[in-house]
Amino acid sequence: MARAVTASRKALTTAIAGALAFLMFFPILWIVVLSLKTEVDAIRAPWQVLTSGWTFESYGAVQERSDYFKHFWNSVIIAFGSTLLGLVIAVPAAWAMAFVPGKRTKDVLMWMLSTKMLPPVGVLVPIYLLFINIGLLDTRFGLVIVLMLINLPIIIWMLYTYFREIPGEILEAARMDGASLREEVLYVLTPMAIPGMASTVLLNVILAWNEAFWTLNLTASKAAPLTAFIASYSSPEGLFYAKLSAASVMAIAPILIMGWFSQKQLVRGLTFGAVK
């Protein structure tokens, strides 16, 4: 039961929390503002920035000068490709562990999780050399494989926790009503599993989109996703604040929106079920 709270106290909490939230959000808000300014206006003092004119020219300039959408497309392919490939491998595994648990299921799950604890830099050298030798360096396919592997434990783990919440009695009931295994999977399990699978996809696309160790080290220019493309702004020539802002806004906007939808799954996915 919610406790009764006076309106004035509620207003005070709202004001404090609102102010702090605004401070946390301000850097994001600010690059949106700067992306709508000219380069000359973008480096002025904040109060001068706000009173200067607005323009969309930076968005056009980013695309023209550096083929922005090539990198955007790379990010899309790498993030979704690795997630979907991971899903194809993870669904059967999570399914089997959730519905036909054996004595060793828990050990297998824990072992899978332990591969996630491997610091990427510990295997940077061999992966880099392997990629050179097989010709996977700076290819989207190579990154899809690597990101699929580093996120596979999370995908399996999340799916497992979702599948386990599907009550076994429903399956029994369907079987008693004469449903075949195919019908059971198609009409009973799948509809119940879809929400969990959707959240899993959402969180893993976010993680893959923002991954910035392998994407920076295994790409040059051809397969570079947005993480690596934005990094190229670290050695700028001339004025670039507005263009950096425009590129950044376009890079984070889609994931910000997806992230807002996945708040709850984030907790479950990133703590491996340790906090629900």
């Binding site: 939230a21 946390m24 850097p27 923002n210 920076l216 702004y233």
Partner: peptide
């Protein structure tokens, strides 16, 4: 409050 978590590391570094 949660939004910064979704900003990719290279963007937050440079911004």
């Amino acid at each position: 409050v949660i939004a910064p978590f979704f900003v990719m590391p290279t963007v937050s570094g440079l911004v």
